[in-house]
Amino acid sequence: MKRLLLFLPLVIAVGVGIFLAAGIGKDPTKLESARIGKPVPAFSLENLNDPTQLLDESVLKGEVALLNVWAEWCPSCWDEHEYLMWLSKEKGVRIVGLNYKDQRETAFSFLGRLGNPYDEIIFDPKGSLGFDLGVYGAPETFVIDANGIVQYRHVGVVNKQVWEEVLQPVIQKAKGNS
């Protein structure tokens, strides 16, 4: 009986080891959005292309869409843009852009060079909508269902792997629900 007690440290060590093993290779910095399952926060911001037109949360309703947070100053946004173009053109995904803490001129030069995959672009120079959404660094991509509810948030670059393994299944599910 007493001998069995001496095995306790070994058992605990093995248990801790399992958790440590599970942690390897995972990126501990990735955070889940606090807004999942909640509607996109209310906002009223200018359309990037048309300062006189105000956009609100209704642009994200009616159809499953990606809400992509980007800016000209964000290096990774340059990397993922080509792929967003492909998603929009080839896959017909509705993508709404959130131009985050940027300036109109630089945003236009960015789109002029790389093309425009966005159906609408919300202009958020102060980052207020970004703050309400819990954006902590561009690029981030949200999946919004037809009712305007946040289903998923991806932090970092969107590429083929992310699309196939993460975003596409979420979009399929969102489409199925609504």
């Binding site: 001998r3 070994l10 080891g17 093993a21």
Partner: peptide
Amino acid sequence: LLMLLGITVIGSLALYA
């Protein structure tokens, strides 16, 4: 490193037990 840690710790704790 985890393997190294595992071998060292499990080996020594088993010996201990």
